[in-house]
Amino acid sequence: MSYKSERAKIDFILEMIENIERIEDRHGGVVSALEDFEGKMAILMGLAQIGETLKKLDDTFIEKAELAREKEGAYFTRNYIVHDYEGIDLYIVEDILVNHLPVLKHKLAAFQSGADN
């Protein structure tokens, strides 16, 4: 595992999370962002990118950072969005944004700051 390569992936995921947060802020919240066509499309693309990139992280890192559940869930979400199985349920997306994305952000940021020391 190349530390530099893994670090770049983590940075990218954190950037995608911050982009999603900015979109939510611009629209005055998660629900408003998902109700807006461009907001919804941008958020879905960000979530797909997060899922794809998490899947590419080395398993050793995933174990150290205790991200196995997040990796599996994010990749499932990526497939759900990309393949649009039976239409995308925005209530599920809202739940991901409110309850799961902050946990992922916290875990990645905590691991990243610990790796810097």
Score class of each variant (00 low, 15 high):
residue 63 E to C: 01
residue 8 A to K: 14
residue 92 I to D: 08
residue 23 I to D: 00
residue 68 A to K: 14
residue 89 D to K: 08
residue 61 F to N: 02
residue 94 E to S: 06
residue 75 Y to W: 15
residue 17 I to F: 03
residue 106 H to A: 10
residue 84 D to L: 15
residue 14 L to C: 05
residue 52 E to W: 03
residue 57 L to C: 07
residue 50 I to M: 04
residue 4 K to T: 13
residue 1 M to A: 07
residue 1 M to W: 01
residue 106 H to Q: 15
residue 6 E to Q: 13
residue 110 A to L: 10
residue 49 Q to P: 00
residue 21 E to N: 09
residue 75 Y to D: 07
residue 68 A to W: 07
residue 48 A to L: 07
residue 53 T to M: 11
residue 22 R to Y: 01
residue 105 K to E: 14
residue 62 I to P: 01
residue 3 Y to L: 13
residue 64 K to Q: 12
residue 63 E to D: 12
residue 24 E to R: 10
residue 67 L to D: 03
residue 70 E to G: 05
residue 104 L to M: 13
residue 38 E to Y: 08
residue 79 N to G: 14
residue 78 R to W: 11
residue 40 K to R: 15
residue 45 M to W: 09
residue 95 D to P: 00
residue 74 A to F: 04
residue 93 V to E: 05
residue 37 F to A: 09
residue 84 D to E: 15
residue 93 V to L: 12
residue 13 I to M: 12
residue 27 H to K: 11
residue 43 I to T: 04
residue 92 I to A: 09
residue 35 E to Q: 14
residue 3 Y to I: 11
residue 53 T to H: 03
residue 8 A to R: 13
residue 78 R to Q: 15
residue 21 E to D: 08
residue 1 M to V: 02
residue 44 L to W: 04
residue 81 I to Q: 11
residue 102 P to I: 10
residue 23 I to F: 01
residue 20 I to A: 02
residue 38 E to T: 03
residue 24 E to K: 14
residue 74 A to M: 14
residue 46 G to F: 02
residue 113 S to Q: 12
residue 27 H to M: 06
residue 89 D to N: 15
residue 55 K to G: 00
residue 30 V to S: 02
residue 1 M to S: 07
residue 81 I to N: 10
residue 74 A to E: 04
residue 42 A to V: 06
residue 18 E to K: 10
residue 7 R to E: 14
residue 51 G to Y: 03
residue 19 N to A: 08
residue 58 D to W: 03
residue 35 E to I: 01
residue 79 N to D: 11
residue 59 D to H: 05
residue 63 E to I: 06
residue 82 V to N: 09
residue 9 K to Y: 05
residue 97 L to M: 10
residue 5 S to I: 11
residue 66 E to D: 14
residue 73 G to D: 14
residue 49 Q to E: 09
residue 114 G to D: 08
residue 62 I to F: 06
residue 25 D to S: 10
residue 88 I to G: 04
residue 16 M to I: 04
residue 12 F to C: 00
